[in-house]
């Protein structure tokens, strides 16, 4: 496979950052050369363990996901009957928890845990990036920071879904969907914390803000809290679930949030650039891939283009 300029750049950067020796470099280049030109054939034919083959998330990220996940569900579950307190259905919910006054206390308590998880997360990514910068292994393309490439990826992906393009774009460790989702969640959490705090400490916010906006602020926060909550609830219920559970290829469940690993076929399909880095960083993966390609006679060198040849 002849790598695109982008993929080549990622590969070179990765080999440089990992201080890859001549022997390994040779091995990587040879492997890349014999990859089938059509990436679709590659991800359709590699063998994957559904629990994941390739390292993706550290234990910290997984704990943060768990914390956010549990607190979010519980916050939504307690928040809805608080907001819609008068509705007939809210009463049994509140009764189960011990009455609305108890629901409110549970809601705030869990909110504190969610904030802790947010702080934990910010610390993790800041310190992690700092560590990488010091070690000289930081690559902005490998982070969640949105880049212009993501806009292009989005356009190309839509073209692929519409049948106007042969392959999905070569996306990085975090693709456009994940970046949208991540920043929506980060923004949403911030909105929830800020608006929630302005219910708890209205005097404090009035003191901080200028007179002309103090009232508007409180009103905006009272709107934002339930709106953002319902939006998040629906995004989780209909989009996040789709992406990690229901989408074909991920069904019935993507195990990454538990194992921290992603499957090989998923990595090649949606995160090809990260897969190239995997090839650099994990010699065992090179071997496994080569064996798979040989057993299925998919090597580009053999002259066969594979598939329906």
């Amino acid at each position: 496979m002849k790598l695109s300029r982008e993929a080549r750049d990622v590969l070179e950067t990765s080999m440089l950052q990992n201080r890859v020796g001549a022997k390994d470099r040779d091995e990587i280049e040879t492997l890349v050369a014999i990859l089938p030109d059509d990436r679709v054939l590659l991800y359709k034919n590699v063998v994957s363990n559904p629990l994941g083959d390739l390292y993706r998330y550290s234990i910290h990220i997984r704990i943060q996901h768990m914390l956010t996940f549990v607190t979010f569900l519980m916050l939504a579950f307690t928040g809805l009957p608080i907001h819609f307190f008068e509705s007939f259905w809210a009463e049994p919910f509140n009764q189960v928890l011990g009455g609305v006054s108890v629901t409110r206390i549970i809601h705030r308590t869990i909110a504190v845990i969610m904030i802790v998880s947010m702080i934990y997360h910010v610390l993790t990514i800041t310190l992690g990036s700092w560590w990488r910068m010091r070690a000289g292994t930081f690559d902005i393309r490998r982070t969640i920071i949105p880049l212009w490439k993501d806009v292009r990826d989005f356009r190309e992906d839509l073209q692929y879904f519409a049948g106007k393009r042969k392959t999905r774009p070569e996306m990085d460790k975090f693709n456009y969907k994940q970046k949208i989702h991540y920043f929506a969640a980060a923004f949403g959490n911030t909105v929830m914390v800020v608006s929630g705090s302005s219910f708890l400490f209205p005097e404090l916010w009035a003191m901080i803000l200028p007179t002309s906006v103090a009232s508007h602020w409180q009103e905006l926060m009272r709107l934002s809290h339930p709106h953002e909550a319902l939006l998040a609830l629906l995004v989780i219920a209909f989009w996040h679930w789709y992406n990690v559970h229901l989408a074909p290829g991920r069904f019935p469940m993507q195990w990454t949030f538990l194992t921290g690993k992603i499957t090989r076929e998923h990595q090649i399909e949606e995160h090809f650039l990260e897969y190239l880095r995997n090839l650099v960083e994990q010699p065992a993966e090179r071997k496994a891939l080569q064996d798979m390609l040989e057993s299925r006679e998919l090597l580009a060198e053999t002259g066969r283009k594979g598939g329906k040849s």
Binding site: K44, N45, G163, P248, G249, P252, R296, L298, G307, K308
Partner: peptide
């Protein structure tokens, strides 16, 4: 596929199938 998980089982309309 309920029992085998989901994957690239079907014939592709784009003509590149799994070996």
């Amino acid at each position: 596929r309920l029992t085998h998980g989901s994957s690239w089982w079907r014939k592709s309309k784009r003509g590149r199938d799994r070996v």
